[in-house]
């Protein structure tokens, strides 16, 4: 139990190194991309280059991805600061987002599914 906690914490620290490196790099080069995305790219390159082994980060990484919703919770509670949208227009906004998100998912999924099937069929005949 203690050993597992230490493993996860040290892995978490290593992921933080990439996170802060990404934030720093984005800041220094004033990139139009958030530091976390730069960190992702840095970690990905390091994995491919063999500088970082998957086992060094896999446990903490798995935890971060599994508990992702938790990290959105404070922002969701932050809606409290926008009492002015908790009215009729707010309801309309939610409806807009619901309809639009539905269309976006359907369009994206439809396109991908069609292309995937065509590619598979093409692969069989050629």
């Amino acid at each position: 139990m203690v050993l597992k906690t230490i493993t996860i914490l040290s892995q978490l620290a290593l992921i933080h190194v990439f996170y802060f490196a990404g934030v720093g790099l984005a800041h220094i080069l004033s990139l139009p991309v958030p530091g976390s995305i730069v960190g992702l790219v840095l970690l990905l390159l390091s994995l491919f280059a063999g500088i970082v082994k998957l086992e060094w980060i896999e446990k903490a990484g798995g935890w971060l991805l599994a508990e992702l919703l938790l990290f959105f919770v404070p922002s969701a509670v932050g809606i409290l600061n926008y009492k002015e949208i908790l009215n009729w227009q707010g309801l309309e906004t939610v409806l807009l987002i619901l309809i639009s998100t539905f269309i976006v998912m359907a369009a994206t999924g439809f396109t991908a599914e069609k292309l995937y099937r065509r590619k598979r069929k093409g692969g069989h005949t050629s």
């Binding site: 934030v23 960190g39 992702l40 970690l43 994995l47 992702l68 938790l70 990290f71 600061n81």
Partner: peptide
């Protein structure tokens, strides 16, 4: 609500490292 935002800022912070961790599934399934 501002005090709550401060009190839960550790979790909000984790969004950054979590984004970095998305490198793992990408690497595994490149």
């Amino acid at each position: 609500p501002g005090e709550y935002a401060l009190s839960s800022s550790l979790w909000t912070h984790m969004l950054g490292p979590a984004t970095v961790a998305f490198a793992i599934p990408i690497y595994k399934h490149a």
